[in-house]
Design a protein around this nucleic acid. Sequence first.
DNA 1: CGCTGGGTTGATCGCACTCAACCCGCGTGG
DNA 2: CCACGCGGGTTGAGTGCGATCAACCCAGCG
Lengths: 250, 250
Amino acid sequence: MAAISLPDTIGAMTAAERLVSPCGRCDARRLSVCQGVDDRCLDQLAAAITTIRLQAHATLASEGDEASHFFNITSGAVKLFKLLPDGRQQIVGFLFPGDFVGLAVRDTYAYTVETIAPATACRFDRRQFERLLERFPNMAFRLRERASDELAIAQEQMLSLGRKSAKERVASFLLQLSRRAVRLGLPGNPVTLPMTRADIADYLGLTIETVSRTITRLKTSRIITLGPDHTVTLHRERLEEIGEGWGGDI
Amino acid sequence: MAAISLPDTIGAMTAAERLVSPCGRCDARRLSVCQGVDDRCLDQLAAAITTIRLQAHATLASEGDEASHFFNITSGAVKLFKLLPDGRQQIVGFLFPGDFVGLAVRDTYAYTVETIAPATACRFDRRQFERLLERFPNMAFRLRERASDELAIAQEQMLSLGRKSAKERVASFLLQLSRRAVRLGLPGNPVTLPMTRADIADYLGLTIETVSRTITRLKTSRIITLGPDHTVTLHRERLEEIGEGWGGDI
DNA sequence: CGCTGGGTTGATCGCACTCAACCCGCGTGG
DNA sequence: CCACGCGGGTTGAGTGCGATCAACCCAGCG
C-alpha cells in the first residue's frame, strides 16, 4: 500500500489538509474527497487528470459550450460569470484553491470561467470521472456536500442582490472573503482582495463607481482600513452589523 | 417481486412519471430516483417516510433550525425565503410537486420554508435517509443532479437580480414559470401564477408596486394577456426577447 | 515620453422605491 | 340587508439611491 501521488490535487481540501501539501503536490489519500478510495482507483484517477497552468484572464470554459471537463482549482483564482447580449455581466461566483468548476453543470456550461490571476487547475474528463464516482460513493458524497455549500452561498448572494443596499453588499462581501480565507488556512484579517473593482461590482450587481465610493465611505468611517497590496483590515463588529442588515449608519 | 407502494412519492418524478401516478400515490419503482433500488430498501424507505398535509401559509422549517428532516413536495407549492433583521425578505426559490426541500442544507436550514397554497409533502428523517443514500448510490446520483439544477436556477436568478431591469426580471420570471409547468406536465401557456404580487416582488427583488406596474405595462403592450384565475397567456417571442436582455422596448 | 489599466471623485439623471389613495371581492357580524 | 374590515391589487405623485457621464490621478511599461 505505497502512497500514490496524483498530479496536484483533486481538491476538497480542508485548511489542515492544505498545510500538509504546501506545493500543490499531495498524497491523494490525505484528501477528504478520497477517503475510502482504494489505490487502484487512485491510479485511474491519476490517469484521468491533466494539470493545466493558466495566465491571468485566460478562459477555462465558455457559457453554452459542451461540458466535457471538470476542474479543480489548485492555485490562483477564477471567476464564473454570465453575460447578457448587450454586455452586462454578472459574476455568479469566485473560486479559490480547492474549489470545483462544474458542480452545477449538466450538459453545457451555464457560465464562462475565467482566471482573475495566474492559476493552476486539475482537469478531468467528465464522463470518465462520473464513472469513477459511480464506483466510489464516498467521493460522490463529498461532491454533493460541496454542491450544497455552493447553493447556500448562492442563496446568500440572492439576498444581497435582491434586498441589500450597496453598503450592506460590500460589507457582507468583505466578510465572505475573510471567511473564505480562513477556510483556506490564510489569515482572515487583514484580507486580500485579489479581484478588481470591476469584478467586485459585477459580483455585487453595482457599478465600479458605487463600489469605489462605498469602500471610501467605509474607510473614512474607520470600519475598514486599506493597506498595501490590496489588503483590507476589517473592524468586524461594525462591519457585521452593517453586512447583516442591522442598519449601522456610515 | 411484488410492487411496493410508498406513502405518496419520494420525488424526482419526470412529467411522464407523474402521469402514471395521478393521485399522489405511486409505485416507487417507477420513480427515477429509485432506479436500481431493491425491494428491501423500498421497505426501509417507506418506514422512514411520513406524509404531511399543510394549509396555506404553514411553516415546514425555519431559518436557523436544526435540519432534522428532508421533504419532498407532492402537491401545492412552497416558497423558501431569507429575512433581514428589519423585515426585508428575499425569496430564494419556489418549489412545486416533485421538488425537494433540503438539498442545500448542511446542519441548519439556511431559509424558512412556507406554503403559498395548501400542500402535501413527504417528510424523511434526515440521518436515516442519508444512511440509505450511502447504500444506494443511484439515488444519491439523482439527488446530485437535482442539486445541480437548483444551483443553475440560482445562478440564473443572480443574473436577474444583479443586472436585469424590472421589465426583464418579470419577463424571465414568467418564462421560468412556464418552463416549470411544462416539466410538471401542465400546459406551458397559458400559465398560472400561484403566488401573490408580494411573493413575486420578494423573489425578483422589487416592490409590489413595481411588479404591478410592470405587469400592467406588459399587458397594455400585448406581450402578455391576463386571464381569469391568475392565468397569464405569454406571447413568447417578444417576451423572450425582453427576458433575455435584448432590450425590446415596451 | 505617451499610453493603458485600475482607481477615485464630482455632477447630473432616471429607474425603482416610498407614500398614499383607491378599487374590488370576500367573509363576518350587526 | 348593509356595514365593515381585510387581503390582494392598481394607480398616481414625489423622492432618493445608485447609474451614468466625465474628469482626473497614478503606476507600470513599451
